[in-house]
């Protein structure tokens, strides 16, 4: 039986311009799905819960998708019930999502809620699916600073795709415009809790200052008037190469980059 993969995509947001775009992680989820499609002869569905007229969907389609499925929802609707319903009815083996959406609430809860609803394991922040044998997938988790953890998970599962996963392929204009976007009507559930929230453009957060808790006036005085330290770095000009190397090495040890 061929593997069934569903990649969920959302409307991204460019960090600089705020313009709608293909979301970084969702693009990677599609890429991962397409790679599996090629290597495992799987079949892949790309699914979006939202408006089917969304131009951004063309950007996903431009990766070379013949079609996209859309569960027609408005912006106020909760995507999770419709998605869960769709997935229950489908025979998906792997559901791929981004870690967090770039627009809306960005809570990153969708994969967790879907996994809970479906009763499947959730694999967070994956970098790659290395292999799938006998219904068990070997997965690489992305840990901070480029580290990886290997995991084996039985199908079916939900996975969120980290930025460490292979970058999505280029989106081409022609195929993107040609792809068919198949919208299906679903019963929408309005996200009523969210209606009471107030949203505003993000206020810049103040950087935490180094607050000196001094007991005496002298200490406070010192803290207030002390010259900022470490403006100019240390320059070793006349030391021998050995001394210089030792100094550098000490700094590396101090910074704990050498273990």
């Amino acid at each position: 039986m061929p593997l069934n993969i569903v990649s969920l995509v959302s409307v991204g947001r460019h960090p600089q311009s705020g313009r709608e775009r293909r979301a970084e992680q969702d693009g990677r989820a599609v890429e991962l799905g397409m790679n599996l499609e090629a290597s495992q002869s799987a079949s892949m569905t790309v699914l979006h819960a939202g408006r089917s007229v969304e131009p951004v969907l063309r950007n996903y389609a431009g990766m070379g998708l013949p079609s996209l499925e859309v569960l027609e929802l408005s912006e106020q609707d909760d995507a999770v019930p419709s998605l869960a319903q769709y997935l229950k009815a489908s025979d998906a083996d792997i559901v791929l999502t981004g870690v967090r959406a770039e627009s809306g609430e960005s809570s990153g809860m969708v994969p967790y809620l879907l996994a809970e609803e479906l009763g499947w394991p959730l694999v967070p922040r994956i970098a790659d699916i290395v292999s799938i044998n006998n219904g068990v997938a070997e997965i690489l988790l992305a840990l901070p600073r480029g580290q990886r953890r290997s995991l084996s998970v039985p199908l079916p599962f939900v996975a969120s795709v980290d930025n460490a996963a292979p970058a999505p392929r280029q989106s081409a204009y022609g195929p993107g415009m040609r792809a068919s976007i198949d919208a299906s009507q679903v019963t929408a559930v309005t996200d009523s809790a969210r209606e009471q929230w107030q949203e505003a453009p993000a206020k810049p957060r103040p950087k935490r200052l180094k607050v000196v808790k001094a007991k005496t006036a002298a200490d406070r005085f010192k803290a207030a008037t002390a010259k900022p330290q470490g403006k100019a770095g240390k320059v070793m000009k006349n030391e021998s190469a050995q001394e210089q190397a030792q100094e550098i090495f000490n700094l590396l040890l101090e910074e704990k980059v050498i273990k």
Binding site: G104, E105, S106, Q198, A200, P201, A202
Partner: peptide
């Protein structure tokens, strides 16, 4: 329903970042 990227929290209201850090959501 959790508040994520919450950065201003008191007993009543929470302000958290939404839309990849571009909005502030105030909520109970």
């Amino acid at each position: 329903r959790p508040a994520v990227q919450a950065w201003q929290v008191d007993k009543k209201t929470t302000v958290c970042r939404g839309a990849s850090g571009s909005t502030d959501i105030s909520r109970p």
